[in-house]
Design a protein around this nucleic acid. Structure first.
Length: 147
DNA sequence: GCCAACGTTGGC
DNA sequence: GCCAACGTTGGC
């Protein structure tokens, strides 16, 4: 899951109440579907810093709450407000994510250098999705290089 | 700030 | 339903 550290960094997550955050504000259908349809409580998450000086994996988190309607879509004062969404018919969903631990920064260049990660979704050309699935083999490989 | 890539919008 | 125009993302 990508986050701009100027918005929410891994350190920010670690200092939040319960070290937990609602992953609100996703307004892309594919990313929404990954949260709503595929993410389950306890699933591991790589916390990726994007749009910053050192893009890359900065820590590990886990899904702490199953997807539910994103409250900001109903809030006219929010920049994520969606006038076409209704509480009876929500359009956007988010999971909650809980801090597990920080890691060393694994930069995007390093990630690209591992042949084992050549097909990792987040590294594909043109990928802009803020949430992408991680194969178990990719998860295990990255956990391995963190040893 | 540039720009490739891609999603969304809206006229037809 | 097509597709041009536009907006956004995000690494560099």
């Amino acid at each position: 899951m990508k986050s701009e550290p100027s918005d929410v960094s891994i350190d920010d997550l670690a200092s939040m109440p319960g070290q937990n955050v609602a992953w609100y504000g996703v307004r892309n259908y594919q990313a929404r579907n990954f949260m709503r349809d595929q993410m389950r409580v306890g699933d591991g998450v790589f916390f990726y810093h994007s749009s910053c000086e050192q893009p890359g994996i900065a820590g590990i988190a886990e899904v702490s709450k199953l997807a539910y309607p994103d409250a900001t879509q109903f809030d006219p004062g929010s920049k994520y407000f969606d006038s076409k969404a209704a509480p009876q018919n929500p359009r956007w969903f988010n999971v909650d994510v809980r801090f597990v631990r920080k890691t060393r920064l694994i930069g995007i260049k390093e990630l690209r250098d591992y042949p084992d990660l050549a097909t990792m979704r987040i590294l594909q050309k043109g990928n802009r999705l803020s949430i992408t699935p991680v194969d178990p083999s990719e998860w295990n490989f990255i956990m391995g290089i963190l040893q």
